[in-house]
């Protein structure tokens, strides 16, 4: 199970990074979101993978590690804020610069939807 979990995080991280290396804003934002899923899963698993042992104090006495969960919970919310900020920054950049490139070339917007 651990191997399968690790493979999943690895593939998600790889897909996210590939997108983050693209030359337009939107794929980069999608890539960063994907990467943040992978990172959250990775961080979360640092407390070990355990089923049916939620960290809610009851009589069972069997609990999973609550600390990574608390960290990941805020990471999810902050990750959302970051995604929102970067996507809107991208929109603003496109409106002001007329381009959604992130490769340093200030080429004009491709014609497709201007015409």
């Amino acid at each position: 199970m651990e191997a399968l979990y690790a493979m999943t995080t690895g593939i998600l991280a790889a897909s996210g990074l590939f997108l983050a290396l693209r030359g337009r804003t939107f794929p980069v934002v999608v890539g960063l979101t994907l990467l943040s899923y992978a990172v959250n899963l990775f961080l979360f698993s640092m407390g070990g993978l355990q089923a049916g042992a939620a960290a809610v104090i009851d009589d069972s006495g069997n609990y999973t590690d609550p600390l990574p969960q608390a960290l990941v919970l805020t990471a999810i919310v902050i990750g959302f804020a970051m995604t929102a900020f970067s996507v809107i920054l991208a929109m603003r950049a496109r409106a002001d610069l007329g381009s959604d490139h992130v490769n340093g070339n200030r080429v004009d917007e491709s014609r497709e939807e201007r015409s």
Binding site: T9, G10, I11, L12, A13, A14, S15, L17, A38, F42
Partner: peptide, 8 residues
């Protein structure tokens, strides 16, 4: 991805 998976 390989490094992330191995580390994990």
């Amino acid at each position: 991805g390989g490094i992330v998976a191995s580390l994990n």
